[in-house]
Design a protein around this nucleic acid. Structure first.
Lengths: 335, 335
DNA sequence: GTGAAAGCGCTAACAA
DNA sequence: TTGTTAGCGCTTTCAC
């Protein structure tokens, strides 16, 4: 592995001159520059970023921490983030916390240890607070993605859970449903709280009686949706529709319903947040409040880089990206 | 940001002692160790991995280069890789080459610059050769994933394109199809070549006449499938079934067919390699040769770490993971 | 224009 | 059991 010294020796200059050529800093005679560049190519020299970072703290490295790499919502965010980062001259590393606070901690420490200049952070939930505090303490700028964390000041790119939920529930009401269950996410995740609250509000506004036993808290995973269905099926009275707080819950629910011989939408309708992008093979199956995931990522990186380069306004910015109602085949008009 | 010196000062020892506590190397009096650990906690000390890597070349960092982060096949690989890496005490960074040789090059350089100990590499195609040579030159071990690259010696985790293709085509034949088109991938990708070849062989074995115009080369993306359909629809004679070389081609094809008023499987059947995991909402829609993506990743990391730690056999190993035929609703019996 | 010296945070090798 | 010295690959500062 060639070092700056090897290049210097081959080019017959000092390491310092090579460094100048590398960084385009200071004055270097055109002739010397060319000689150095030739030497770099010949040795297939690649500057050691660790060493560079050690000296000048500019690693041109950003991190993206997402909470579930198997969820298309987050991988699409990753794509948006990556494209934006490359456009702005930054490299990216990705970490997957897997909705797991311990893994998240490890990644935050790894991020700190790696010399990242900034973090795009999709927190696993409220318990992410200490991790964010840690980033603050180490003066690493970050942008919060998708989920709020109480008691933390930061730039944020958020969805609009309230509007999305309202659109979905009103679509159900429009289709004649008044008996609607809510498969909610974990209460330590802000979007889960917001969606559940908006669910209750929307019913209230439309004068629909709320049945507390139909609000089933679960997690944002397939198994959560399955478990919620099992609970629901034990009850005497069943709803005609389900509002699932995220895509995985919806799919798990559909799978479990299926296994119990219930068809969507014939036996029960279902709506959800976020789609599966690719799963929309023919017409979209899931009726969903679709969020612009790619823009979550791209915008987040933009804000992060603004903050790193000091071009962001001094007060924190929150951008809210609205969801769009996309009607699929998972909902059916009744009555 | 606290350094090892700060910790040393607070604990009243030399940096070297702190280093020993950190690494569990050498002898440290129990009492001293505790004092140092207290100091580390108090300062929320996180060792700078760059500096460590600079010294001892052991960064405990692995890289995964995948060719399309939006493809569930690859994200599932990522999960498998990550789990295995964590289990073995390594951290991971992910890079997405986006099937783009230029981006791939940038990532390889970034990987080299980052001090990664090894790379799990899903090459974008044959043109990845120079990048692999570069890794060799820098003595970074790597394991090739999913795709072969001619003229390179390496450990490999591969699928079995031949068997998978045969299973799919024979399923079609079994369903009465003899007029089958092949939407092939780019010829610079080994799996695409293998699948196309296996397609031809299987037809031959079953005495089915090959129609060269029905072999349509395209890329492994949605748009590729769409474009292939447009070409197909211009022809006088249309097949009753399509063999798509990967999942994205299949989906793009289905979408485009749909837009031309053709239904799958009623008007045309379709089979493909790899599923979309989540897209299998109810029963699986796509009839597919499903590959064990998670194991691709997990096994790849295992082999990589074996190589890094010198516990691998001296000659190169190739593991072939067989696909499984999963019959969905995208194929229909005819005659 | 170019180079020498010093140091970023850490650890291997050697001393004590 | 602990500390000192030197150096990983690079850049900053200052001299020439």
């Amino acid at each position: 592995m060639a070092t700056i010294k090897d290049v210097a020796r081959l080019a017959g200059v000092s390491p310092m001159t090579v460094s100048r050529v590398l960084n385009g800093s200071g004055y270097v005679k055109e002739e010397t520059r060319i000689r150095v560049q030739k030497a770099m190519e010949e040795l297939e020299y690649i500057p050691n970023e660790n060493a560079r970072g050690l000296v000048n703290k500019k690693t041109k490295l950003l991190s993206l921490l997402i909470s579930d790499i198997t969820n298309p919502f987050f991988t699409t965010i990753a794509r948006g983030a990556e494209d934006a980062a490359n456009r702005l001259g930054y490299r990216m590393i990705f970490g997957n916390s897997d909705e797991n606070i311990k893994k998240e901690k490890e990644y935050v420490e790894m991020v700190l240890a790696s010399g990242t200049e900034g973090v795009l952070f999709a927190p696993s939930g409220d318990f992410s607070l200490p991790h964010l505090r840690l980033l603050k303490k180490h003066q690493i700028p970050f942008v919060l993605l998708d989920r709020e964390v109480p008691r933390i000041q930061a730039d944020k790119v958020m969805g609009d859970s309230r509007t999305g939920t309202r659109l979905l529930i009103e679509h159900l009401i429009d289709f004649g449903h008044t008996e609607i269950a809510c498969f909610s996410g974990p209460s330590h995740i802000s979007t889960a709280r917001d969606r559940e609250k908006a669910f209750q509000e929307t019913l209230l506004i439309h004068g629909i009686q709320l049945r507390p036993e139909w609000i089933i808290p679960t997690d944002y995973k397939l198994e959560g949706g399955r478990e919620a269905v099992r609970q629901l099926l034990k009850m005497k009275k069943r709803p005609t529709a389900i509002f699932a707080a995220n895509n995985f819950i919806a799919i798990g629910a559909i799978q479990e319903l299926q296994e119990h011989g219930l068809q969507v939408p014939d036996d029960i309708s279902i709506v959800t947040f976020d789609d599966l992008s690719l799963a929309t093979i023919t017409e979209p199956f899931l009726t969903a409040a679709v969020q612009p995931a790619y823009h979550f990522g791209a915008l987040g990186i933009q804000m992060l880089v603004d903050r790193i380069q000091g071009t962001a306004p001094s007060d924190w910015r929150t951008v809210i990206l609205p969801p769009e109602l996309r009607i699929g085949r998972s909902t059916k008009r009744i009555h």
